[in-house]
Amino acid sequence: MRYTVRDLIISAIVLVVLVSGVVLVRNRTPDTAPRAASPDTAHPITISPQPPLSSTMTVHSPDGTEQLVLKEVEDRTGTQSAYVLTASDVSGANRRIIYQSVAPNGTNVRIPANSWSPDNKFVFIIAIRNEQLTVFVFQANGEAFADGSPYIDVSSLFRDRLPTAILRDVTGWDDPSLLHVMTYTADKTLGPSYWFDIWSKSFIELARR
């Protein structure tokens, strides 16, 4: 078999067309293989930060007409959280900020189920850090108390007035102005219960039944 010049030219053209096609296809196919990051990339790859962790806790007033909401947002460093305590109607209307604060991680801030006073005028929250309780009472309308204080620090008053006792828990309201306070003795056995009167800021020991 003999090849003519014409055959050679056709073969060359076919070869050029094939090679061109292969090159074209390769250039159009997206490269899915991972590439090593290049240190001299003009636009370095940036990693989006994780959205901050947040949680919300809601507790209704005993008659179901109002709600207390505690929103916690952990900051970007992950070392502390911001807390915002608000009260409103259950519909969300008439919202007012009760308290805002920042606490280091490891602090457990919560709204107890019995937070609202039975007349819906006061609320209390509990923060626990290193097994120590902090208890704040607020006016539910968001206003300061008559002496200008934004809250009553029940735990500080407890340590001042009852230095040998340990604050175990504040469970709720025995009446519209009396908080029910439970204690440990210094040796960690169960101690007596007290009323904390928010008007006189005094602790009244309760008789054992």
């Binding site: 005993p62 008659d63 189920a113 019995n114 609202w116 006073s117 039975p118 469970t171 709720g172 309201w173 025995d174 009446d175 519209p176 029910h180």
Partner: peptide, 10 residues
Amino acid sequence: YWHNNFGHPM
């Protein structure tokens, strides 16, 4: 309506 200490004897 006179207390809010539910979960405890009252």
